[in-house]
Design a protein around this nucleic acid. Structure first.
Lengths: 202, 202
DNA sequence: TACGCTATCGACACAGTGTCGATTTTTGTC
DNA sequence: GACAAAAATCGACACTGTGTCGATAGCGTA
């Protein structure tokens, strides 16, 4: 009662602005290509002047990086296949379905990120790290299966992991606005392809 | 002697300038990232003023597209695997080796093109067409083998073709400045992977 | 109330792209 | 070699987007 609970000060005005910028960015990057969004758009979308924008973020790509943090975090969850032993086809399928759905839901932002990576070293490094972490986990799983005898050893595990990322990303990029059926089809193809790459013999 | 052979007028001054721009572009795009090359660089590299550049090319990407035309043409040759029947592992390997070597030799330009595709619709379409043609030829070959029974049918031929392009491009992108041994390693991995994708069972 | 921190913005500088119109150079022809 | 048309050149200008600086306004707290 007489508790001196320091009343939790709500989010400051600045925090709200920052959130507003991120929200505006999410909307804008979802509907337009990266270069078509100017800093002015982001600022006025958040109700501030262009110059004020710089108080919150140093560059346009910094905003995009912030958005990607969330997406990257969500993607990192649901990696059920990596923890399984052997082919575990069902788990692979589940994992792909999760990531494909997430990808489709954020298609605009991810496509903007792909564009911006060409220019921004910051974003390139950021996405590179996410991807590298993924590839490493995949490589470990494959290495275990190679040791266990279920996976073939002709191609090094880390190369297989890279190939998986390559075909996955390429297919996911076509996923913007896809129907559920198309998404399932993509997941089916990828499941089969990954299985052939890792466990199949030529 | 008295032959009235209309003497072939040599290349006009303009032709020479255009060639000079392309030469300067090849050099610049080979050593710097795309955005780091300005139109001014290209112009003064060819010994003319920036404004004069516009007399020859409408944009920076138009120059890059012109350069890509040659590379694309060279790449289109040497597609020996497509014409063979069945796995034809040796021919596949040869084809990959040819394209990998060509890629490495033009790594700078190709990497600039990849960057510029993000912004320029012209270049995106241009490269898209090259790639599409490649994918179609690959899909045809695979379809023949599926009909003949050597290739599996679980994944549609055109999807397999896309996957092949995806893993090839991803691996080739790491090829800038690679040694011959590294290049051969990449070709080996790709040969095996493509074989597994097309002819292997999971 | 007054001090310092947070936040805002207008004015400015800059780099790169692209256009226009005036001028010079080249080219083929008589 | 002179001449006109075509080819080529370039300076001046306008525009867009980015980023900096410093002056000012609000806000919380001692």
């Amino acid at each position: 009662m007489s508790q001196v609970t320091r009343r939790r000060t709500g989010p400051s005005k600045g925090d709200l602005r920052e959130a507003a910028i991120l929200e505006a960015a999410r909307a804008l990057f979802s509907e337009r290509p990266y270069e078509a969004v100017t800093i002015d758009d982001l600022a006025s979308g958040a109700g501030i002047s262009r110059t004020s924008f710089y108080f919150y973020f140093p560059t346009k790509t910094a905003v995009l990086t912030a958005l990607m943090t969330n997406v990257g975090h969500d993607l990192a969850a649901g990696h059920v296949w990596f923890d399984a032993d052997g082919p575990a086809r069902d788990l692979l399928r589940t994992q792909l379905e999760t990531s494909a759905t997430l990808w489709r839901a954020n298609a605009g932002i991810l496509s903007c990120a792909a564009t911006a990576m060409a220019t921004s070293e910051q974003l390139r490094d950021f996405v590179g790290r996410i991807r590298q972490r993924y590839d490493e986990r995949a490589a470990e799983k494959i290495r275990r299966d190679q040791a266990g005898g279920s996976a073939t050893t002709t191609i090094p595990a880390h190369r297989l992991a890279e190939m998986i990322s390559a075909i996955r990303d390429a297919r996911y990029e076509q996923l913007a606005g896809a129907t559920d059926a198309e998404l399932r089809e993509a997941v089916d193809d990828l499941t089969e392809a990954i299985h052939r790459l890792v466990y199949g013999r030529a």
